[in-house]
Design a protein around this nucleic acid. Structure first.
Length: 500
RNA sequence: UCCAGCGUAGCUCAAUGGUAGAGCGGGUGGCUGUUAACCACUAGGUUGCAGGUUCGAGCCCUGCCGCUGGAGCCA
């Protein structure tokens, strides 16, 4: 009797008869043989149908893409099959014959088109790989904290309006009162950590800025640990241990998925080393240094050469395309042309903006916040993720602790991911002195009345404490090597778009 | 909000100011081991919208709409 099986387990079932349930992901036919590609969420399996059974064969020949099916057959190992095992089909039951106009083919599509069909795009191999890695990442984050004795405390989604940065918040009508979607759970967590010492929250967070970049979402998920009796160094150590732990967990469980995404794992294995640390002031000196300017100029020259090589390669491809008659080869060359054009366009854009970036690094004024290009330059200087610490107080939020030795600075840190992925963590030690905090609230033009409960935390057993926020989509994009954070979440909200 | 780029077949893209094309996908037929199969045939277009220049505009000019991602802001 045929056993129900997941495609992922087929290798262990060689020789036995199984039933798999899934969807038709592809079909090729060879006259008297049909190859069905069936996916079931655990993997993809090639199913062979031969004309012995006329009913099954006829069905296989006409089955439309993405139809749901139950396929019965004998598992056999075969080197020619993707994955090393295939099913010799004895029976096909069509659960639902899909309409014949499934919009996503196995050929190239633009991201815009795919995003408009996000509900179907999720079925693709790359997208399921990302979703699985995301699941592991979140579980690893939570396990890491759980094992250190952290308690999960859920913070509210609806929050009262807080002062001036209201243009970055989504307003919501709350029984006739204007409130806002939360952009952090931090202030609430500070209360909770005075009760439980080590706490964290994990949930959606909302930013109303109309940021049209590949690093921004309007709705994203953030995990935020907060610890009492902790100073900045403790917070940094926690962040480093956590990132190292979750990256190694993903590497351990998802080698295959990362390979499917074309991710170069070598760069991820470097998180085993201690992360680099640099103070804001040292980072400014680095940006302004002759040495760095020279290195950047040299890199630019190398990229110029790369660009010329790419253009030459493109011309050759175009010449070959004009000559070829074979459709398969034509297709292959056309694909290479597309990716060559994309590389060239990106390089050209990059090279065009590079002189500005170099210039602005060279002229960087102490006191400004680091821009995106500055972060990329700094992270490019190190092979591990790098903590940048102790920013000028004017550039940062009111709740960050003033550094006693240099009151121009705050005890904060940002963790910059390698390869230009930017800030994946932002955190700080919090100001625990009520008087200083009150002063900072005033400086920031906020109303102390809005923060009376927050000030209370400094009136009753105040202690050094701090924490950070880790952006799930940002770190996932880095781990998976994605070009855009929108692929790191199933149903993204970005730049005002809401396709579904 | 500012800056830049793009908008041609269902999809991905071509097309010196001079007859709008290819590949994929769809349809039909063929093929017993394909790997994004292949071969032959076939259908498919208000070139984002509105003006303008020109003998002639997909291409040049103006305005509008839409999209993209960079600045700002940040995870």
């Amino acid at each position: 009797m045929a056993q129900e099986a997941d495609i992922a387990d087929l290798k262990q079932c060689a020789g036995s008869e199984v039933v798999i349930s899934g969807w038709l992901a592809g079909r090729r036919s060879g006259g008297k043989i049909v190859f069905l590609l069936v996916r079931d969420g655990t993997g993809v399996c090639q199913c062979i149908v031969e004309p012995g059974d006329a009913v099954a064969f006829g069905c296989a020949e006409t089955l439309s893409l993405e139809s749901s099916v139950r396929v019965t057959g004998t598992v056999r190992a075969d080197k020619r099959a993707p994955g090393g095992a295939e099913i010799a089909v004895s029976d096909i039951r069509v659960i639902h014959a899909a309409d014949g106009d499934y919009p996503i083919s196995r050929k190239a599509h633009g991201v815009d088109f795919l995003m408009a069909h996000r509900h179907l795009w999720l079925r693709s191999g790359t997208q399921t790989a990302i979703l699985k890695i995301r699941h592991t990442l979140i579980r690893a984050c939570r396990s890491f904290l759980d094992e250190l004795g952290f308690t999960l405390v859920d913070t509210p989604i609806l929050t009262p309006g807080a002062g001036e940065d209201a243009q970055s918040l989504f307003p919501v009508d709350y029984f006739g009162k204007k409130v806002f979607l939360a952009q952090t759970g931090q202030l609430y967590l500070e209360s909770a950590c005075m009760a439980l010492r080590r706490v964290y929250c994990f949930g959606p967070t909302f930013r109303a800025e109309k940021s049209k970049t590949r690093r921004h979402l309007a709705e994203f998920w953030m995990i935020e640990p907060e610890v009492a009796f902790a100073e900045l160094d403790d917070v940094i150590q926690l962040a480093e241990d956590m990132v190292r732990s979750v990256v190694s967990e993903v590497l351990k469980l998802h080698e295959h998925d990362l390979a499917h995404l074309g991710r170069d794992i070598a760069s991820l294995t470097k998180v085993r080393k201690p992360f680099a640390r640099i103070s804001y002031s040292d980072a400014v000196d680095l940006l302004r240094s002759e040495e760095l300017g020279g290195r950047l100029a040299q890199e630019m020259e190398q990229d110029r050469v790369r660009l010329e090589e790419q253009i030459a390669a493109l011309k050759q491809l175009e010449a070959r395309l004009a000559k070829t008659g074979n459709s398969r080869e034509h297709d292959h060359i056309a694909d290479n042309i597309l990716s060559a054009r994309e590389t060239i366009a990106e390089l050209e854009k990059d090279l065009a903006s590079r002189p500005d970036h170099i210039q602005s690094a060279r002229n960087f004024q102490w006191g400004n916040d680091l821009g995106g290009s500055d972060e990329t330059i700094i992270s490019g200087h190190f092979e591990t993720p790098v903590f940048v610490t102790h920013y000028p107080r004017e550039a940062k939020a009111f709740y960050m602790k003033i550094l006693p030795e240099d009151r121009r600075l705050v005890c904060n840190m940002d963790l910059l991911a390698p390869e230009g992925y930017g800030e994946i963590i932002g955190g700080s030690q919090r100001e625990e002195d009520a008087a200083v905090l009150l002063e900072r609230i005033g400086e920031s033009g906020l109303d102390p009345a809005d923060y009376s409960w927050y000030l209370d935390l400094r009136r009753y057993g105040s202690v050094a404490h701090g924490g950070f926020g880790l952006g799930i989509e940002r770190i996932l994009s880095w781990i998976c090597g994605l070009k855009h954070v929108r692929e790191s979440i199933a149903f993204p909200r970005f730049a005002g778009r809401m396709d579904m």
